[in-house]
């Protein structure tokens, strides 16, 4: 008997798990939400395109997340046993480590690009954005600040540096996500709830990028140069630069807020800004080569099957990421 459940059922559980985590009042409930989330995401990974790569990704993801969840429930028990008698920081430390493993912060980030590499764009988007919500919420409640800031700075730098030589769009997004986690961790270190806004804008930008890659069927950087549609190029690169945080674009807004939050500590701010400069460097390098150096065009290349309707949607979204900083910054003034 072949039991087949279509993916949208799992997406319901995916949603529910995160909601349980976010709204639970105990660490045990949060852990339960995490597990539901994990268990519903794995079939989604495998089901949507049943091939070797996605299965490999699912296995890797499962192993990492299960071990991290184990440490989370272990530290919850630790809390439970020792809460009244000691003021130990050990469970906080362990939770911080475990959750950063779940999030893929450096130096536990190695699994993240490899898992992402095997997914299709919808699942990539879920992994990049939705799957981060519950660990981040728990992390913002139980973190050990010294470990958190170390991990944050490491992931900002490593994410930026590792992204340089990449040619796969998924890996670029993965390393960019790691780098953004560094910023989020940096804001969290200063007990600011503005990390949520950072995460929202990041999710928005990631959504546009994944959506456009999905629409235009792009997986590797070399395919970008072959794009015949100049508008598509513009859409992709405006959003990439927005993801990198180039000032007039939307992606700069959360970085701006983060700078305002972190301005009390100059070295942290410097490391974060320099790492995002490196990110911007390779985005601009991609841009530059795509727009100027060469445009490949092959007569036998397959036709692009992008419908105008989706293109319209993408254009609207890109418009938001171009001028989005103005109304948003007014909102935060």
């Amino acid at each position: 008997m072949n039991l087949y459940f279509p993916p949208f059922i799992y997406s319901f559980f995916l949603f529910t798990g995160t909601m349980i985590t976010v709204s639970s009042s105990s660490l045990f409930g949060a852990w339960m939400g995490l597990e539901i989330n994990l268990m519903s995401f794995i079939p989604m990974m495998i089901n949507s395109e049943n091939n070797k790569k996605s299965t490999e990704s699912a296995i890797k993801y499962f192993l990492i997340q299960a071990i991290a969840s184990g440490i989370v429930i272990f530290s919850a028990l630790y809390f439970y046993f020792f809460n009244s008698s000691t003021l130990s920081q050990v469970p906080n430390m362990l939770i911080t480590l475990a959750l950063s493993m779940k999030l893929g912060m450096a130096p536990f980030h190695f699994w993240f690009p490899e898992v992402l590499e095997g997914l299709n764009w919808i699942n990539s988007l879920i992994l990049l954005t939705w799957q981060k919500i519950s660990p981040l919420v728990i992390l913002s409640l139980f973190f050990y600040s010294k470990i958190l800031i170390t991990l944050a700075l490491t992931s900002a730098l490593l994410g930026a540096i590792s992204g340089i030589n990449q040619t796969s769009m998924r890996k670029i997004l993965a390393f960019s996500s790691i780098s953004h986690l560094g910023w989020i961790g940096g804001m969290m270190y200063f007990n600011s709830s503005l990390w949520l806004d950072y995460f929202m804008v990041y999710s928005f930008t990631s959504f546009i990028l994944c959506f456009s890659f999905w629409m235009l069927d792009l997986n590797y950087f070399s395919q970008l140069t072959m794009l015949k549609n100049l508008n598509a190029k513009f859409i992709i690169f405006i959003n990439l630069l927005s993801l990198g945080g180039l000032p007039p674009l939307l992606g700069f807004l959360p970085k701006w807020m983060a700078m305002m939050v972190i301005k009390t500590s100059f070295p942290i701010l410097m490391i974060l800004i320099l790492s995002s400069l490196i990110t911007l460097y390779f985005y601009t390098r991609l841009c530059f080569s795509t727009f100027t150096l060469y445009i490949q065009s092959m007569t036998w290349f397959k036709k692009e099957n992008s419908s105008m309707k989706n293109f319209f949607l993408l254009s609207i979204l890109t418009f938001f990421s171009i001028i989005g900083i103005m109304p948003m910054s007014l909102l935060y003034l």
Binding site: L63, I64, I67, P107, F110, E114, N165
Partner: peptide
């Protein structure tokens, strides 16, 4: 770029190694 290359080599290890770090 070189640094990125070295980090890339690090990430070519087995998944067990990453769990070991944790």
């Amino acid at each position: 770029s070189n640094m990125s290359l070295k980090i890339q080599i690090m990430s070519m290890n087995s998944l067990k190694v990453f769990i070991l770090i944790l």
